[in-house]
């Protein structure tokens, strides 16, 4: 790729926000000294907790507002409850959460089936657009998948004999 020289002075707004006071060793905030009052600031009214919430152990109480999307449930929920017994500093907080996320995917498929919905994995992965914009790539991936599967099957068949 060839880089074309530009006259930087012609770039709209060039240099107009330059700030000699923006000294990087000083945090970019309007320091008020309120940090020393810790959490004794005026809070908004507390949102009522009408779903199960998992809270960081590094907080004394819920925040004034919070999201109520997808409360913990099932096996993944049990793992998430375990994870939230540990602080954000611990691997035993984050690793179980990742495990729960993976288990949650299978719970999602089971949930779909329980509701009479068969998930269309191809549509959910947007493969129509892959076919539209990258036919070669789709064909290549399919051929590789078929060849790998055939090789694995033939390997195990030979082993059986």
């Amino acid at each position: 790729m060839k880089n074309i020289p530009v006259n930087i002075q012609d770039i709209p707004g060039y240099g107009m926000d330059a700030d000699p006071e923006n000294e990087p060793t000083y945090p970019m905030k309007n320091y008020t000294g309120d940090d020393h009052n810790r959490i004794n600031y005026e809070r908004s009214e507390q949102q009522p907790a009408d779903v199960e919430l998992l809270m960081s152990t590094e907080r004394p109480a819920l925040t004034a507002v919070f999201g109520t999307s997808t409360p913990p449930s099932g096996l993944s929920g049990m793992i998430r409850r375990y994870a939230f017994k540990h602080s954000e500093d611990r691997y035993r907080h984050w690793i179980p959460l990742i495990l729960a996320d993976r288990i949650n995917v299978y719970e999602g498929v089971l949930g779909d089936l329980a509701h009479g919905h068969i998930p269309n994995i191809f549509a959910e992965r947007g493969l129509k657009s892959s076919w539209k914009y990258n036919k070669k790539g789709v064909i290549k991936k399919t051929v590789v998948a078929v060849l790998v599967t055939a090789a694995i099957i033939s390997f195990f068949r030979r082993k059986k004999r």
Binding site: M28, K29, N30, Y31, T32, D34, D35, I39, Y41, R43, S44, L53, L54, M55, S56, E58, R59, L62, T63, A64, V65, F66, F84, E88
Partner: peptide
């Protein structure tokens, strides 16, 4: 109040970071 609106302390009970 210090302009750190991306670090609000009253909007996320699930993590402090």
């Amino acid at each position: 109040k210090q302009g750190l609106y991306g670090n609000c302390h009253e909007s996320n009970p699930m993590a402090t970071a």
